[in-house]
Amino acid sequence: MTTAGIIALGNLEARIRGQGGRAMSGLLAVAERAELVELIALRSHVLGCIADAERAAAMAHELVGEAPTDARAFLTRARMSGLFHRFVSALTDLDTAAAFGGDGVELDAERAAIYQALGRYDEAVAIRRRAVDRHADFNGLAALAGVYGDRGEMDQAERWFRAATRSYRETSPFPLAMLELQRGQLWMGHDDLRRARAWCDAAVRRLPAYAPAQGHRAELDAALGETPAAIARLRPLALASDDPDYATQLARILADAGEVEEAQIWRDRAEARYDDLVARHEEAFADHAAEFWLTVGGDRHRALRLARHNLSLRQTPRARALVRRAGGSALG
């Protein structure tokens, strides 16, 4: 059993509100500021709030400027760079953190996460396995499950997901909800839609405000033919979140359902937002923007350019598939 989502999110908000004020006055130590950055990044992920992620990244950058010899500051900035797919900068910061005496286990875990995002799965697996051999805690087991999943080895992934879930002894709902969503996303990628929906549903039950879980749940509802349920789930998300992914999904589902006028409104909204985000963070949004232009955006050449840019950053199966799809569409 984990803490109810409403309590956990309220307590997270309270912590951010409190520490945020003190940080503005310059009264927090480096470790406290790093914690604040990570709390804001957590809220960004849970609520699907890109503005929060930008704020966290900016704070991490400032932290390095003000504590230029502190390993924790560089580790924090590396994490935020990873969020925005600035992988080269992230790896450089991890090296700097190591040179300043950062915790080797923590830095290795972060390095593995970046290798995984880059599609360097063998290196990521090697680090994750070493970590689990040394200490098989929830974080290590969950990370190992994730990298096996990304490598397409779902039997192995499931084995480690189960081990991670069994090892969880905490009360916070966030780590388990993230694990459940990740499990759902992996099964979605393997076209097992019902199993995927069950895991996304578990994440939503645990943390009802979890925007990415709600978004994927809606996507699965639509894929399973439950269009009205998908639309009902997506409308509030598309309204509340500054992540255009939800508006894109909603536009696509509405268009498929013949609701052309409303679909156009959400499409236009997503376009404006993607233009803005790609201008500022092209690495981070190239893949999702490519999906947008490839589907409701209706500009296959633009989709192909963005998909190729994404592939130049990370050679993952998903990035390759996106280029193939965009290329096929652009040629067709």
Partner: peptide, 15 residues
């Protein structure tokens, strides 16, 4: 419990 609690902080229902 909850050192440095802020208004809005609540007890967990999971313990």
């Amino acid at each position: 419990v909850f050192p440095n609690a802020q208004p809005g902080a609540l007890f967990t229902d999971a313990a």
